[in-house]
Amino acid sequence: MRPLRLFPETTKFDFVRLRFAAFGFTLLLLTATALSLAVNGLNFGIDFKGGILVELQAQQPIQVADLRNHLSNADLGEVEVQQFGNPREALIRVEAGALRSQEASQIVPRLRQALGDQYEFRRTEVVGPRVSGELLRDGAMATVLAILAIGVYVWFRFEWQFGVSALAATAHDVIVTVGLLSVTQLEFNLTAIAALLTLAGYSINDTVVVFDRIRELLRTHKRAALGEIINLAVNQTLSRTILTSATTLVAILPLLFFNTSTLLNFTVSLVWGILIGTFSSVFVAASLLLYMPPVGRSQEPDKTGEKQAAATLENEGR
């Protein structure tokens, strides 16, 4: 069985020259993120805002107006009713951030009373204001620490210039994904944080593969300019980068079929994050090395390396 060649054997894109376009695009995304955060903010879930969330299911399709009527009789203050794909399901959110937890705990029994037996309470979440504050703090801390730790790891395994680039690229991917959550107003909750961290881990994966190749080429091509080496490394790893992104995408796309809202933000963030992560690994991360003090290259002559380098360059048709 012969495999299909999904990608050309060797590519010779000049990624280094394309970097200005890529930087421009990145800048655009970052600006859009900043604007959206300033205008829309994030749609914090009750994990981070405190309050009450109830997921209902009924035997018949739910009439939202009817449901609202029932709820307004229960005198619960600010109540939000929302429907997702399935017409027999609805989400109810009660703002209870300001309520003390003792009072908040009375709301669910009152909801049950107001709605009667026609509705099944599939999920109930009550998060007090103190816990939500802690969850938000921990979530933010985990994300920042993860990005820093990844940078430090890369610095430790490579050199500091690589660490800085990796840090910048990973932070970029995470920030831009936060931007997507802000633009789409998808719920920003603990699951979203999990998506951000996964994506940080995934995106650095791609970057490390490229850096690994750059390091190898730096050893073998002692006289080549850094720009040339970056281009060579990105091109040589390109088919792997795209193949891995593709397999990961095809694996997680079915998660979109979850008919509940629970994992929607997770899946959307990851799909977007994989695309953005691939983009930044290919166009941004490596090119950033050009703007930093030159990476130290060992001066010892490496005979086998030279030989191999000559072979590679020949193969690349230079």
Partner: peptide, 26 residues
Amino acid sequence: ISTIIDSNLTTFIAAVLLYIFGSGPI
């Protein structure tokens, strides 16, 4: 192999932090 280890370890770092700071389902 070295590439595989490097790339997996970085993801592992994120997972460990997720465990430390996460709760319940996370």
